[in-house]
Every structure is written in C-alpha cells, then in structure tokens.
Write a protein that binds this DNA or RNA. Sequence first.
DNA 1: CTGAAAGCGCTTACAG
DNA 2: CTGAAAGCGCTTACAG
Lengths: 342, 342
Amino acid sequence: MTEQVRAAGGRKVTITAIAAAAGVSVPTVSRVVNGRSDVAPETRAKVEDLLRQHGYRRRTTVPGDRAALLDLVFNDLDSPWAVEIIRGVEEVAHAAGFGTVVSAIHGRAGSARQWMKNLRDRASDGVILVTSVLEPVLHEELRRLNVPIVVVDPAGSAALDAPTIGATNWAGGMAATEHLLGLGHRRIGFIAGPPRLLCSRARLDGYRAAVEAAGVAVDDELVMQGDFYHEGGFTACGRLMDLAEPPTAIFASSDQMALGAIEALRRRGLRVPEDVSVVGFDDLPEVRWCAPPLTTVRQPLVEMGKLAARTVLRQARGEEIDSPRLELATELVVRASTAARG
Amino acid sequence: MTEQVRAAGGRKVTITAIAAAAGVSVPTVSRVVNGRSDVAPETRAKVEDLLRQHGYRRRTTVPGDRAALLDLVFNDLDSPWAVEIIRGVEEVAHAAGFGTVVSAIHGRAGSARQWMKNLRDRASDGVILVTSVLEPVLHEELRRLNVPIVVVDPAGSAALDAPTIGATNWAGGMAATEHLLGLGHRRIGFIAGPPRLLCSRARLDGYRAAVEAAGVAVDDELVMQGDFYHEGGFTACGRLMDLAEPPTAIFASSDQMALGAIEALRRRGLRVPEDVSVVGFDDLPEVRWCAPPLTTVRQPLVEMGKLAARTVLRQARGEEIDSPRLELATELVVRASTAARG
DNA sequence: CTGAAAGCGCTTACAG
DNA sequence: CTGAAAGCGCTTACAG
C-alpha cells in the first residue's frame, strides 16, 4: 500500500506532484479531484490523465466528509446466523451513508489486537460487538478510543457498560418447552449452547422453568452440552438417545444443533416427529425448507441488527439512548418437526 | 455526525482545543491520543479526561496509517452463499490489516449511487464486486476513482475490464449431470438460475453437453426457469413433476433450489432418492445436514473470496496480476440424495 | 517528559 | 477559470 502512493520515479503521488507535472496550481488539481465544475475542460482532461497515470489516491480525509464507518465484529463468520445480523446492520448503515466494516476475531487475542489497531486507523464512528468475548485489556483500550459501542447478544455480564441488544431468550426457551409439554411430552431433552454465553443460560433456564411449572421434575441427565453447531447437536442427541430412558422430544437451543439432532435421529432409524419431536432456536431462513420443516423459536436477527445500527448511530450523534438493555421478542414458530407424543 | 465534533460550547473538538483546556501543547495531546509512552502519567491522565469529556475523535487520517479498507459489494445479502464469500475476503483482508466494508446495493440505481459516494468518501483501497450488475454509468464513475477492482462470479461479459474470479460452472454442470446419467437416469430435469447471469448459462450448457454426450436428446421441456432461491426451486420442481412424462432425477443449479425441489417432492409424497434423485450446486455447509444429505457440486466460495481479496490487494500494491480470468475448480460431492434409477 | 518550529496534504475564501 | 495566500488538523524531528 505504501508503495502505491509512489510514482515510478519514486516520488509520492500528491496533488502537489500532479500540479507540478500538469503545470497548474495545487488548488486547481484539488478542484478536479473533487469534481468541481469550475475548471476548464482542457485543464480538467489534462489533470485527470495525470491523476490516472500516476494512480493518485487521496491521502487524507477531510473534516466534513469523514470516513463514516461502522464496525461490526463477530467472533466467527461461520454460520448463517451472522449474515442475518449483517443484513440488518448494513441496511440501516447504508441508508445513513455509513459503511459497514465486518470483522471476525476468532476469539484470538492477536486477532483482536490487530482489529483494534485497524479500528483506530480507520477512525470508525461506531462499534457493534456481537456476542463478543473481548479481553478486559481490550475493553479498556476500546473505551479510550471514545467510540460509541453497542453489544448484540452479550456474552456475559455487561463489562463494557455499553447498551446491549438481545432477544428474550428466557421467554423463548420457556415457550418452546411449553409447546412440547402441551403436546404431551414429559421427557424432554435439552441441548445447551456454550455455557459462557448469557443467551445459553437464559434458554436453559426458560426450559427449566417451563418443566417445573408443569409439575415435572427436571432430570439433569436430559440436559446435554452443545456448541450451537450441527456437530454438537448431532453428538448430544446421540447421547440423549443412548439414555436408559431416552426423551420423546428434544429442544435444541440453536437451529443448527436441531438439524444435527434430526440427522442423528435419522441415522438411528427414528422418525421426526412421529418418534421424536424436535424444536430449534433462531428460525434461520433455511429451516423452513428442511425435512421436516422445523418448529423453532424465532429470533428477530435482522431487526436486532437494525436496532443495533440505529443505536450506535444515535450515540454517534450524541443523542440519548432509551435504555441500556433492549430485548426484542422471540416467537414460537410451529412447523412440522413436532407432534403429540405417540 | 457533524454535531459530534463540537463541544457543548459550540467549539470544535480538536487537539488544539484540548491542549488549550489542559494547559499543555498540541504535540503533547497528539502523543496521548496516539498512545505514545513518553508522557508523564499525570499529564496523560488529565488529557485523557478532557479527551473523554469532550468526546474527541480524530478528524483526519494521516498518511502512513491510511484507512486501509476493502469494499465488498453484493446485490443482496440474503443467502448463506454471501457469508462464505465474506468469510474468505475478511480472512485475507484482516491479516493484511484491511477492513472489509460489506454493502448490498439491491440492484437499485439510487443505492448504487449512494454506495459510490460513500466509497469515495472513505477512500477505499480496493473493490470486490460480487455478481454485480452495476449500470454502465457507474462503471465509468468507478474507473475514475482509480481504485483496484475485482469481480467475483461476473454477471455478464467483462464490462469493467477488471480481473474476474469464478468457478468452473460449466464443468460442474457437466459433472452433476454425468453422475445422474451414470446412475441410469435418462429424463433429468434442470432448474436454471437467473438467465442474465453468466454462471447460470454455464451450468445449463454443462448439463446440455453431458446429456448430448450420452446420446440422449435434450428435451427443452425438462429445463425450467428458477431464481437460485428455495421458492423458485419449489415451483420449478412442481412444474417438472406435472409434466406428462416427469423426470426421474432433478439437477437444481443452486443448493437452495435443490432444497426447495426436495420439499416439493416431499409434499407430493415422493421420496428422495428412492423415487427421484436430486443434485444441487454450491455445497453450502448446511446441506450436509439436510434430509437426505444433498449430493451437490461444491463451489469453493471461501477460496474464491480469499483469492479475490489477494488479487485486489496485489493490484493495490501495484503488482502484476497473473491472469485476468481465474476459475477455481468445482467438485462433485456425492451424498444421499441421488440413487440408481429405480 | 515537554514544547516551539517546521512540515504534511489538502481545502477554503479571495482576487483577478 | 485560475492561482497566491492563509488556514486546517495533525505529526515529525529537534532541543532542552
């Protein structure tokens, strides 16, 4: 990149250099670069030629038309989940004239540090952290940057004292479980997400609350650890079905795990929902088209993204934030993967 | 945003203002802002306080640590397809210290124009256009910006004379069709993508070539128009099965359409692959977990993203580009949605 | 550890 | 339509 701003001769490509080459003044080149109309056609043509030849690029940004950037940071970009959030954020940001810089830090400190450096260099106007697990050191550094922050689906307790946006995970966990109970299921397996995440806890607690409210004792052996991915759902479901008294229904706390669970059941020759009912969590667009179409708890991911973008933008404008913690409603979507207990 | 840079009193928040408030010199504030170590702790603390109170933000970028941004532009951000490309681009860009600005222009001229303006303001260092259908006017404007461009999965003929990166769509279409022919299928339905896209044409031509090479006459009524989405696959499959002589196998030229097709078959009480075989195209991560796991043509989307990023980065550094047109190999992945003709 | 000085790339009135 | 001048926000040696 640094090479790029040098011409073949080795001189830096600035408007000063171009002006010298064209035999015009610096302000004139500036006018051409900015597409102003008050330049003679021949002058403009000559300068534009030189600009192209030397590969001129603006080297500073000017107050007024500053970069206008929002940073959207994920741990990983490996699920259809992410694209929904990106979509929401991008829509709002784009409309406001902001670019959306998407990053993945893979939970690696080095990667996070590199991102932080880049963030600083690009003078981002706002940061949206998605279920982020930044190290405390970086929190401090981030705060020093004085940039508005919003956390979507916070991983743990509010370490950053930034506004957070989430979904009603507890209520969603409860609704899914009540649906299964209503169908007559009494032994309901639960496949949990990573325990360090707040949303995992909330979904599990919702499940527990519903089971207990129905007067059923919570059997801890029915709660299996998962990781939100297919693989984890597949494995956990296998273990559930190996139980002495296997469940008749499974609530996987992510759609991907639900799909993994269905595959595990299929491999055992069990039918969904005739033999075992399955509920997911997220309502990714594709689960409508799986076989059978998945009953799941809808999380308004696009809306969460939009709200997050609006919230950072508001902060960037110095406006007041309504609430430090917003939870958008989840909604049970009943499709064909659940049925009355046989 | 413009308001943001003014303090309560109405004065602009520059390091000059902060220096005055703190009773130190401008260079000292500059040092604090840049996290340099050679500042007395008390001075640093005082300046940092003021910085925070006034909400200071850097107003210019400085040559050397320029923004370092790559723009990645989609028509729409509505498929799991997109996240794969993003993942590849982000990985390479991040490693090189570049931010990845993701945009969707929805094929709307206004949206594209807005994006172009933003691109200019943020002084992006490179642009990756994904199956872009930019208007010719914008091509001209984009060229004037003098920014390196790469087109991934080009929509049509090379209007921009930028390097393009794609997959071997024709070979993929051929491989999928040969697989079905090898299983004894003779009436193979084809569900096409949007006709204006080059990749749609290539896949269809590959299908045609394989059918003809097998000595079977291509029956045009077996070729249905789709749109790459579930819905289109669902509808097209319905029409195929309504034919007087329906196909025994279906090659949908995207995974989403294949999933839609499977759902259509399921609703008609037809089993996959026992009654009808189905092949997709893309190999999205989730199709491994559908029922049945989908036989499909793998497109190396992440690699395509990586290669695109490396290519713009190379151009940005003024290096030579190997080839103006790169095609990464597709690969047939046989899973459980295809079987010998019953 | 700090500041006065010089300099950067760019833009804005202002005068012609 | 153009340029000389002044100015912007910031940074870099350099001297102490």
